[in-house]
Design a protein around this nucleic acid. Structure first.
Lengths: 133, 133
DNA sequence: ATCGTTGCAAAACCTTTGCACCAAT
DNA sequence: ATTGGTGCAAAGGTTTTGCAACGAT
């Protein structure tokens, strides 16, 4: 599962703050807001650094923002070019990603029929997950 | 306790700031961020009031937040209980709402197959609109 | 007359910037 | 050695709160 990506990809240094932020995101399988992240890492990582780390991660597609919560979550999907699907539990906050070709197609169809050229889509399904029901 | 919110329009007063904010949202058929709104209404409406008006509107389902931009847009659809579709032009910023029963069904199906009980979904299709192409 | 609504001032918050030092490669 | 990353301090910007006055119903 988790691959230790200690390779030097485009000047991406393996530092303590980054490892800590990454671990924190892995621990909670949900979207976490920057403020919560640096609350959790208080004393260990400077708040400013948390923002910078998140930005770096986002630029490299390691994390992305979750639409309804605004928090950051680890990218768990091969991230097939701009088609993001989220299943969000409003009780426990768990966020699960999904990809669905048919949904994409349907979305493209909708765009076309309105004269839009679709480039990417984000779908957020909010509900209650199995273990919270 | 909570006052009965069942009076005709639920104690929703027709005031100058509200008319101005509403008009501003109508003028620009796109999602507008709070900061831009009070920049446009500078001198006419207090910034604080802009936030309060937006919150009041949102609570009454008159406006909603647009996922990718974070701005507010007038609700142009009958708002059929939590199924929001947006077509967003990344060039001109225009936001067009849509509803699509099939998309909804498909989203519900995806939720079910992952053990989620779907309550609402938001779809944001980002691309380029006809007149910007 | 009653309450919700507004404006103002100030506070609270979150996020970014600048800069010198440090560390991973 | 180089280059990017970090911490600290401070600034910047947005949003919220408290309170007295106002005004729509």
């Amino acid at each position: 599962m988790v691959t230790s990506r200690t390779s030097s990809i485009g000047g991406f240094k393996d530092t303590r703050p980054r490892r800590l932020v990454l671990r924190e995101l892995q621990k909670s399988k949900r979207a976490v807001e920057p403020t919560e992240l640096h609350r959790r890492l208080r004393g260990q990582v400077d708040p400013v650094t948390v923002y910078r780390v998140l930005r770096a991660f986002e630029e490299r597609g390691l994390v992305h923002r979750h639409p309804s919560s605004g928090g950051f979550a680890l990218c768990t999907m091969p991230d097939t070019s701009g088609h993001h699907g989220f299943l969000s539990c409003r009780k426990c906050g768990r966020v699960q990603e999904f990809v669905d070709k048919n949904l994409c197609k349907q979305e493209d169809r909708i765009a076309e029929s309105s004269g839009f050229t679709s480039e990417s889509h984000v779908t957020d399904i909010i509900g209650v997950c199995q273990s919270c029901r």
